[in-house]
């Protein structure tokens, strides 16, 4: 594995600049196909509303993948992510328009571990809601 970030260059409290990730209906259709999760709450507004949801919602795993992308882009090598876990705390509602929704991810170095590993604490928001909580990635640095 070859992360491009050096352990010695990173301190606890270091902030990784926030990034915006768009989520549109087509994103969810593509994700359904690629992941095999065809639950209609992720593409069928009529069905979503009959089960009490405000509209179509993003797959939690799509949102988690955006957090993953944020960390792998920072680390340089996706193989450097050795542990990644989240709790899904709020839905990402995706309206059927040209804007869709936006997930904004930011991160901070929470802890330095042995063996040149660090814990990155992630924050992911959509609108006013925090959509991931307890989101942590352990990254093997160089």
């Amino acid at each position: 594995m070859s992360a491009t970030v050096r352990y010695d260059d990173v301190e606890v409290g270091l902030e990784i600049p926030a990034a915006d990730y768009p989520v549109r209906r087509v994103s969810l259709v593509m994700y359904a196909g690629a992941s095999g999760d065809f639950n209609p709450i992720h593409w069928n507004e009529r069905f979503a509303k009959t089960v009490g949801l405000p509209d179509v919602i993003a797959h939690g795993m799509f949102t988690m993948a955006q957090g993953g992308r944020f960390v792998t882009d920072w680390a340089g090598d996706p193989g450097a992510v050795v542990d990644y876990g989240v709790k899904f705390s709020s839905m990402v509602v995706v309206p059927d328009d040209d804007q869709g929704a936006t997930v904004t991810v930011s991160g901070v170095i929470e802890q330095k571990l042995e063996d040149k590993r660090v814990v990155v604490a992630l924050t992911a928001r959509s609108g006013d809601s925090r959509v991931l909580s307890r989101a942590r990635a352990v990254v093997q640095l160089a």
């Binding site: 996706p78 542990d83 990644y84 989240v86 307890r134």
Partner: peptide
């Protein structure tokens, strides 16, 4: 009841990619 299922938590712990 699958219609009422949402994802609560998810974690991946790697030995290698």
């Amino acid at each position: 009841n699958f219609a009422m299922v949402v994802h609560g938590e998810q974690r991946f712990e790697y030995a290698r990619p």
